[in-house]
């Protein structure tokens, strides 16, 4: 008799509802601490993010984002300190310029708006962190799994 496999969600994608994977680059001084605060305060948010801590939002190179999309992220979030709050003085201002260009450019070549997002979250904004994550996950869920730029299966 065939043994029934236990249904624990399984690791086959077709066995369970698809869940978006979001890579979140969080700056050490603000957004990462904001995420921490959300945790400490027991604020619920979707478990779809994989956090990568960076010293500053301006540390994030456009290639980091592209690489994340290439290798399985369905969405990318970059989050840093509010303008004026950068630990290094001006990192987030420089990042803002870089990402303004990148966002337009990615959309120009046909990457869906919403795949790559940006936010300012301070160390005191646990609640905002949770709601940003909720929004990003919701946006990416609507877009569906990433297909463009994905390695070995560009569609």
């Amino acid at each position: 008799m065939e043994k029934k496999k236990p249904n624990n969600g399984g690791d086959q994608p077709q066995n369970r509802q698809w869940q978006p994977k979001i890579v979140a680059f969080l700056c050490h001084w603000c957004s990462y601490a904001g995420a921490d605060l959300a945790g400490i305060s027991r604020i619920q948010y979707p478990p779809n993010i994989r956090v990568i801590r960076v010293p500053c939002s301006s540390r994030v190179n456009p290639l980091h984002i592209i690489k994340a999309l290439q290798h399985g992220a369905d969405g990318v979030l970059v989050s840093g300190c509010h303008p004026g709050d950068c630990h290094y003085g001006s990192g987030n201002y420089l990042a803002r310029r870089k990402f303004a260009l990148l966002k337009r450019f990615l959309e120009f070549i046909g990457i869906e708006p919403g795949r790559v997002q940006f936010s300012w979250v301070s160390a005191a904004e646990g609640q905002k962190f949770a709601s940003v994550i909720e929004e990003v996950v919701e946006d990416v869920r609507k877009l569906g799994p990433a297909r463009r730029l994905v390695k070995n299966s560009v569609k």
Binding site: L63, I66, L102, L149, V154
Partner: peptide, 23 residues
């Protein structure tokens, strides 16, 4: 930074990198 294969996504990553460096 970018794979050296001829997979379309690697080619795209090269170009996105190159083009963005010209910004």
């Amino acid at each position: 930074w970018v794979g050296t294969t001829d997979d379309p996504s690697d080619i795209m990553a090269f170009h996105l990198g190159r083009i963005f460096h010209t910004a």
